[in-house]
């Protein structure tokens, strides 16, 4: 089965199955991946489901909306391949994708 790997700030890895149509945030929450807060529950309105996507996979995650960009700009931990995981919809093409979690969600 297709899967993705979340890497916590301390290096702990969590590999979870991809469920197509769900968001990256949702599968993290469903599988109890620590380090994602998702305070707004997936509205792209709080910035607390921040992940940093591995360079090789950033294209596969699709475009960043203006709304998402604005929320990302509010975190001092933002990197070039930062995304809000609630705004990344999973597909089987993301099989093997690796995303890192920041030290803190803001």
């Amino acid at each position: 089965m297709a899967n993705i790997t979340f890497v916590e700030h301390d290096g702990t890895e969590h590999t979870v199955d991809i469920e197509e149509g769900k968001s990256l945030m949702q599968v993290a929450m469903d599988n109890g991946v620590p380090g994602i807060d998702a305070d707004c529950g997936g509205e792209c309105a709080c910035g607390t489901c921040h992940v940093i996507v591995d360079d090789r996979w950033i294209k596969a995650t699709g475009a960043v909306s203006e709304e998402e960009q604005q929320m990302l700009d509010m975190t001092p931990e933002k990197e070039v391949t930062s995304r809000l995981s609630c705004s990344v919809n999973l597909s089987s093409e993301m099989d093997g994708m690796v995303v890192r979690l920041p030290e803190f969600q803001m």
Partner: peptide, 20 residues
């Protein structure tokens, strides 16, 4: 459960900066 899903910090670009 989901105690974090509250409105006190606001949402969007004006979300409370000092929440943490």
């Amino acid at each position: 459960k989901n105690a974090r899903n509250h409105l006190s910090f606001g949402f969007g670009i004006h979300r409370c900066m000092g929440n943490r």
